[in-house]
Design a protein around this nucleic acid. Structure first.
Lengths: 186, 186
DNA sequence: GTCTATAGTACGATAGAC
DNA sequence: GTCTATCGTACTATAGAC
């Protein structure tokens, strides 16, 4: 799907730059010229790796798929269980996956169906892991929604999905306690 | 902030058109020409009411503020209480407020601080009403996050913030039961 | 594999008639 | 209050040198 199906260095730098611009100012600010400049290549150089803007967007969604796949594996093996892993990693850190998700959120030139597909694949994996742990599907859905809510706030540029408080560690701990009690209801 | 501080008909139609385009295809597709066409006016006509793109975006955020103010009053007086009102109205319907929220979500040409301000004002009002009802701040936060999660999914074009299910009424009912049990924990 | 130069297009905004 | 016409700009993408 690219010249030699993986010419890692420049290609990845371009995707990183694209993500950064999307996160900071949305798609309109993420022009080919700006992306190229931030990645340290020229516009022509960028277009060698991604033949047009659609290919650039697709590249981002593909990387999101890979990262979310890896994350699902880590989530399945987490010491504190999938739910806790999910809640505690939803956006409070600034991981590569977090960045991909927020960037993809701002990606509106891609067909809506394609974007939806990417998110649904990711969410259904998360949901089945949570459901496998907590049993009750309604409660699993509720937990999933809380994580979605944190991504929502992050993509709005909110401090951390939990308005009006400073200490992130304390916020996560508090939310984990709620989830714990919620699981007890299942 | 406008010629005569309220020349309702065309002005509102323009905002409606702008919202619709933002919801469907994001800010890049919401050009002055497209907005004008959809509102049934010319580009020049539009620019009489909103002197530039920034004014158009600001108009949308101002209307969001008004609608969310009205919604907060309805929420405070809801028969089933603020939490239930909040959860059941979070985006499953296609109300004027829902449309304003989703549109504002896609608005990335406005300074991030201004958008954040609009959302924080709305969310802190919701949070204080929920907290007033349930008592426990952590649980109130969790309920707020669930609603945020529903808006997140709606703005991603997901079926309804609750993947993989058809019957919306049943989904809401299920979530309301979870919230009910969550409140019981407080 | 990366560059410069440029063609072609679409956008935001202005000016001025009606 | 709404229109048409138009200017300048910035963008995507191509062509072709290195």
């Amino acid at each position: 799907m690219s010249p030699k199906q993986r010419s890692a260095p420049a290609r990845e730098k371009v995707l990183d730059a694209y993500e950064a611009l999307l996160i900071e100012n949305g798609e309109k600010a993420a022009t080919l010229e700006q992306v190229a400049a931030r990645a340290g290549v020229s516009k022509g150089g960028l277009l060698y790796h991604f033949r047009d803007k659609a290919a650039l967007a697709e590249g981002l969604l593909e990387r999101l798929g890979v990262l979310s796949e890896q994350d699902a594996e880590a989530m399945a093996e987490a010491d504190d269980g999938p739910s806790a892993y999910y809640v505690r990693t939803s956006v409070f850190e600034d991981s590569a996956l977090d960045r991909s998700i927020i960037a993809a959120t701002r990606l509106d030139s891609v067909p809506a169906s394609r974007r939806r597909e990417a998110f649904e694949a990711m969410q259904s994996r998360w949901l089945s892991l949570i459901e496998g742990e907590v049993g009750d599907p309604a409660i699993a859905h509720a937990i999933l929604l809380m994580g979605d809510g944190m991504y929502y706030n992050a993509s709005l540029g909110a401090e951390a999905g939990w308005p009006r408080r400073e200490d992130r560690e304390a916020q996560i701990a508090e939310l984990l306690r709620v989830v714990e009690r919620l699981r007890g209801l299942a």
